[in-house]
Design a protein around this nucleic acid. Structure first.
Lengths: 341, 341
DNA sequence: TTCTCTACTGTGAACGCTCACAGATGCATG
DNA sequence: CATGCATCTGTGAGCGTTCACAGTAGAGAA
């Protein structure tokens, strides 16, 4: 009799083999797809597994196969973004889920500092994970190159900028999302449309700006650099940008903001300047974060399909691990119209 | 010549031993603390490790030691809470960090559904992790009992309610935080102090309510059940609760709300009812979440020491894994005074 | 009948590590 | 000069798998 708190020795493949009256090899074959196993043997093994409560020892398996059957979720962002950006939550949750469906554990790694980066790379390069889901938006991140050099399968979230090596990634169609928003602003009668961009070393920064410019041109509106201000995705930078815009071009009637968080800052500043939204100035955000709903007024924004992004990241990573070439997947965004525009 | 993308066979303990001119055993001893190793041998091994770029194969080690040197972070909450509650972010981040400092990978598990719960338990019970950091606030969670039965070391975040088994946990001093907030409200002249509690099957729900009641009594204020309304930690439930309160007791001059998110809802409802905060009614929150700063007006709230909570969770879990008895740690909270009270 | 082919099964040898043990050395003690 | 002890070192076994290989049995073709 063992107490509740003592773990008893778990069943091994040997125990199962004995219980089923077959050899280790046969049990192993059943475990790995069941090819070249007679129906009778398979049934006996299945029953034995159920009786013994057998679960494979992944360490033993990994030792011989050389694969770990696990995947890292690596975040190389300065930590404040992790706290602020609700997208990470959604992404992390959905990736965990998608991997769990395939019985693959997710190892969470956060590399905000150089030291953490080194440590995590060391772990990954040692072959302790089969692949990496990478969240790193800044241009020229050395981690990307290191991972590529080490031959570790990687799929990034968002297009990795400033990389010479080809790396697979999954992203929302930022440019088209921006186009759609600006078209919407134009369609609702706005003619002096400004923009607050994200940092221009991030894909969201450059792509959304590009979409904005393209659409202005397509709508026959003049390009005016005074209407473009760059923020850093923080709420404060949004407020700052709005003040700059009002000063430079008091006649603007719309602002396309490259993130909801910054859009909140814009709303703050506009309210403080006595501008009514959307009557005087329409505001369009990006992300459809929870903040978009709770702001005053609720934000018209662009929804990124995070559930699909996660699913595709996992799918393409596993394909890459299985030997396929790096793939890039671009997924469509969706305009969500609320009260701010 | 291997291409950049091909992983070459990593160095083993054998290679290091040959390189250093010693035996496997000596290398192993260096790797595990360096006891009973001559300084000369240790130096030779260290150099050889550096030259060969050797990293232990954790699978091989785990196979023989029976330990995985990894820890699970298990979240058994319905997923909406994961999205909404910013505390999870902070906790997860800090735990990852604390574990990384000890070179222990964190495996993230999210068990919102019954199916996910089963799968994760199976994984854990198979001994694939050495211990579990458990985040599960609801009363009588069957996962707690299952883990205890399986003899897996567990440390919970917050006191696990409705459990017959003794289990280690780390928590903020909810009750004392509530006391402090109510004392503050009283000290600033409020005399009709209502409260919006969390769900009463969560520790935050019961403890904060208890602290509220104690302090009312201590201040000589009458207990009045009409001033107590229960929410579910969501913003909407906060608004709903505020409406109920205003109806039942229009003369209240303060509300202690058991979470910032609900407090936001309370602010919404009060604004809609034409009440000024804090002039007419003071509002106190709990959590010091980012929402507390961005609400109008910024919330006076209670900060929970999440960094310390995480650090203690990791510390006590590792102690538990090392064989110590389950410990409980209660950490002090801190009043953060802003404009709402 | 004999041979070949397919479907299935069992066996030894790894995988890279730790652990127990045996042995060697040096030094102080009786 | 033997004995004990502490410090250090190497060796073999074994952790629980998978994989390659050798083998068996039965069906069908020659």
């Amino acid at each position: 009799m063992s107490t509740a708190a003592s773990r008893r020795r778990p069943a091994t493949i040997h125990d199962v083999a004995r219980e089923a009256g077959v050899s280790r090899g046969t049990v192993s074959r059943v475990l790995n797809g069941g090819h070249y196993v007679s129906p009778a043997a398979k049934a006996a093994v299945d029953a034995a597994i159920r009786r013994t409560g057998y679960v494979v020892n992944r360490h033993a398996r990994s030792l011989i196969t050389g694969k770990s059957d696990s995947v890292a979720f690596l975040l190389t962002e300065p930590q404040e973004r992790f706290f602020e950006d609700p997208n990470f939550n959604v992404l992390l949750r959905a990736c965990t889920q998608a991997l769990a469906d395939r019985d693959i554990p997710l190892i969470l790694m956060i590399a905000g500092t150089e030291d953490e980066r080194r440590r995590n790379l060391r772990y990954i390069e040692a072959g302790h994970v089969d692949g990496v889901l990478l969240v790193s938006s800044h241009s020229g991140d050395p981690v990307v190159a290191r991972l590529h050099e080490a031959g570790v399968p990687v799929v990034a979230c968002g297009k990795p900028l400033g990389q010479t090596t080809r790396i697979g990634y999954v992203a929302a169609d930022d440019r088209d999302g921006a186009r759609e928003m600006v078209r919407h602003l134009h369609a609702t009668g706005r003619r002096r449309i400004a923009t607050v961009t994200g940092p221009l070393d991030t894909p969201g920064g450059v792509e959304r700006l590009a979409g904005y410019r393209e659409t202005l041109a397509a709508c026959g509106l003049p390009a005016d650099d005074a209407l473009v201000v760059t923020g850093d995705y923080s709420r404060a930078s949004g407020a700052e940008a709005a003040r700059t815009l009002l000063e430079r071009a008091p006649d603007i009637d719309a602002v396309f903001v490259a993130s909801d968080l910054m859009a909140q800052g814009v709303l703050d500043a506009l309210a403080r300047a006595g501008k009514r939204v959307p009557e005087d100035i329409a505001v369009g955000g990006f992300d459809d974060s929870p903040a978009a709903l709770s702001s005053q007024p609720p934000l018209t924004t662009i929804r990124q399909p995070w559930d699909r992004i996660s699913a595709e990241m996992v799918r393409t990573l596993l394909a890459r691990i299985a030997g396929e070439d790096p793939a890039t997947v671009i997924l469509p965004t969706e305009l969500v119209v609320r009260e701010s525009a």
